[in-house]
Simulated scan of single mutants.
Amino acid sequence: MEIINIEAQTFESMMNRFEAFTRKVENLCGDHQDKGLHRWLDNQDVCRILNISKRTLQTYRDNGTLAYTQINHKLFYKPEDVEAVINKLKSK
């Protein structure tokens, strides 16, 4: 482990800049928070809406029946895509 010494004034300056950067990032994230994502559905929502099991949902994903988006190992579905599947199932 390497130890580095810096002056207290330099450290304070670094911390102030870091805090200013953090505030800017928080402001930017606050402006764009949940834009559109609140309208997306997760696995549990889709299974409940379609009254299907998780395995059936996976089959729909695998064969291209239902489009999805994956973000950090979590799957999301657009409500209009789920509605299209409902209409497709009704027509069969």
Rank of each mutant, 00 (worst) to 15 (best):
Q9F: 03
Q9Y: 03
T10W: 02
T10I: 05
S13L: 06
S13H: 06
S13V: 14
M15H: 13
M15E: 04
N16A: 08
N16C: 06
R17F: 15
F18R: 05
A20K: 13
F21N: 07
F21C: 07
F21E: 07
T22R: 06
R23D: 14
K24P: 02
V25P: 01
V25R: 09
E26N: 07
E26I: 15
E26S: 03
N27S: 10
N27Q: 10
C29K: 14
C29N: 13
G30A: 09
G30T: 04
D31M: 15
D31L: 15
D34H: 12
K35A: 07
G36A: 06
L37N: 13
R39S: 06
R39E: 02
W40K: 06
L41N: 02
D42P: 06
N43E: 09
N43W: 11
N43V: 15
Q44R: 11
Q44A: 13
V46M: 00
V46P: 01
C47P: 08
R48N: 11
I49A: 00
I49D: 01
I49V: 08
L50Q: 01
I52H: 01
S53H: 01
R55H: 10
R55F: 07
T56K: 05
Q58S: 08
T59C: 14
D62C: 13
D62R: 12
G64M: 07
G64Y: 00
